[in-house]
Every structure is written in C-alpha cells, then in structure tokens.
C-alpha cells in the first residue's frame, strides 16, 4: 500500500498534456455545443440514450471515448442515461437489423417530447456496406424519423460533437 502510494507520487503524470482551454478544436466545439444546449432548452443539460441497432461497435467505441478524461463531454452538459424515458436525444448506430427494428421503435416511442434522433455512422445514415442485405432494414430513417446524421465509419468523437452541435443548431432554426 505505502510503496504503491510512494510510487504513484514519484512517477507523477506521464500521460500526454491535456489540451488547453479554448485552444483546440474539441474545446471550441464543446463550448459552442454548451451554448447551443443552453439556448435549446434553457437547461444546459442534454441527456443522450444510445441505441445500438446492429452496428459493428466501432461507433460505440467512439461514443465511449466521449466520456474519457481527454474529451470529457460531461463538462459540456452531455450525459448518457440508462432509459429512453430519461433522454432528450436518441443516438442510433448501425444499419437497423431486423431483430433490432422493434427495439428501436419502442425506444423512440418511449422518449418523451421534445426529442431528437441522430443517426451516428454510415451504417445508420445510409445502411453502409450492409444496405440491401436481407438481414437489415436499412438506414434509421426507414424506421423512425431522423433529425440529423453524422457520417463517418466510424465518426471520431470530435465529429460526433460537431454533428450534435449542427443538429441542435438546425433544430433551433
């Protein structure tokens, strides 16, 4: 225990330097997003429920990265919640497989208004390389109305943030 503590103190921080506030792209986008959320509900808080409708999980890795110490999306007012009933935004990834079609519909049905659906990744936006397969329905908009799309296979966390920003800006106008 003590030797471990001593070692922690001796080693110090060896991870790469955290980005300076207001300098990098992430910070700028994040601050813009924070302002946009404030104007959207006057609530400065955006709860996201993510639905994996049969994705390759690449999108999920990137979304998880939003919460890590580097991106730290919590400080912009984003949070991921456990139930669609708690959510403001549904993010959907994957080319809606036939098995997940019902799940997606019910999740959308249970999200209280005002709500927004964002398709994340090429699979969700167009069906991607799976489009036309007998096992998938295709793009998310074939199942539920989609408000915005974030392209990329997978989109990086920064792209996701920018996509969220664009979607909120669009919803306000």
């Amino acid at each position: 225990m003590l030797s471990l503590l001593a070692r922690i103190i001796k080693t110090g921080t060896v991870t790469e330097q955290a980005p300076q506030v207001g300098s990098t792209d992430i910070e700028v986008t994040g601050e813009n997003l924070k302002r946009a959320i404030t104007r959207l509900y006057g609530g400065r808080s955006l709860r996201i429920r993510h639905v994996d409708a049969g994705s390759s999980n690449a999108e999920e890795y990137e979304m998880t990265a939003l919460g890590n110490a580097y991106h730290d999306s919590e400080r912009f007012g984003l949070s991921f919640v456990a139930s669609p009933r708690h959510a403001d935004i549904l993010t959907v990834s994957g080319p809606v497989t036939r098995n997940m079609e019902h799940a997606l519909r019910t999740a959308y049905d249970m999200t209280p208004e005002p709500r927004m659906v964002i398709a994340v990744g090429d699979g969700a936006c167009t069906g991607g390389i799976w489009a036309g397969s007998y096992a998938v329905v295709g793009a998310v908009e074939k199942v539920i109305p989609v408000d915005a799309k974030i392209f990329g296979d997978p989109p990086s966390p920064l792209q996701i943030l920018k996509g969220l920003l664009a979607a909120i800006e669009k919803a306000r106008t």
Binding site: Y41, G42, G43, R44, S45, R85, D88, D109, M110, T111, P112, E113, P114
Partner: peptide
Amino acid sequence: LSLLRKDMT
C-alpha cells in the same frame, strides 16, 4: 430544470 420542461411517457 430541463427535466421539468419535458413531457412524460
């Protein structure tokens, strides 16, 4: 506050 402004399901 933002939860108060939402509808309920």
